[in-house]
Simulated assay, not measured.
Amino acid sequence: MMYELIATATFGLESIVAKELKKLGYDNLKVENARITFEGDEYDIALCNMWLRCADRVLIKMAEFKAESFEELYQGTLNVNWGDIIPENGFMHVVGKSVKSKLHSVPDCQSIVKKAVVESMKKKYEKDWFQEDGPEYKIEVAILKDVVTLTLDTTGQGLHKRGYRKRAGDAPMKETLAAAMVYLSNWNNEKILIDPCCGSGTIAIEAALIGKNIAPGINRNFVSESWPQIPKEIWDETREFARNRINDDEIKLMATDINRGVLKLARENAKSAGVAEYIHFQEIPIQEFLCKKKYVTLISNPPYGERIGEKEEIEDIYKTLGKLYRENDTWSLYIITSNEQFQRNFGRKADKNRKLYNGRLQCYYYQYIR
Rank of each mutant, 00 (worst) to 15 (best):
I336M: 12
R162Y: 04
N269P: 05
E42K: 11
I60S: 05
L324A: 06
D128Q: 13
V148I: 13
E175S: 06
S226I: 01
H104W: 14
S200I: 05
C48M: 06
R267G: 10
E340R: 13
E190C: 06
L333K: 02
R162A: 01
A255W: 03
A207H: 04
V141Q: 00
L47I: 14
T238L: 06
D108V: 12
K66L: 11
L265H: 04
N89H: 08
D257V: 00
K252S: 13
T77A: 14
E32F: 09
K114L: 08
G211V: 04
R326N: 12
L73R: 04
V99C: 08
T151E: 00
F70P: 00
C48K: 06
A179C: 05
H104L: 09
V80N: 05
E206Y: 08
N49C: 01
A7D: 03
A178H: 07
K293R: 12
L103M: 09
N188P: 01
V118S: 04
P228W: 01
Y368N: 03
D329K: 15
I16D: 05
L13E: 00
I336K: 02
A350P: 06
V262G: 00
L290I: 13
T37M: 11
N353W: 11
N301W: 02
E64Y: 08
A270Y: 07
K319L: 09
N49I: 02
E71V: 12
I230S: 04
E233I: 11
E71N: 13
A215T: 07
A34N: 15
S105H: 15
L152Q: 02
D133R: 10
I143V: 09
A18I: 00
W235E: 05
Y357P: 04
A116E: 04
A207I: 05
I203E: 02
N89W: 08
T337S: 15
R35A: 08
S338G: 11
A255E: 02
E288C: 12
F342T: 01
T155W: 00
K323D: 15
L333G: 08
A208E: 09
P228K: 10
C54L: 02
K124S: 06
M1Y: 10
Y125P: 03
V141H: 00
E310N: 06
I258K: 13
G96M: 02
P172D: 05
T330M: 13
A46C: 10
P172V: 02
N221W: 09
L78S: 07
K271R: 15
D195T: 07
S226A: 14
L144G: 07
L263E: 03
V31H: 05
F222C: 02
N244R: 14
S200V: 07
F91W: 13
T202R: 03
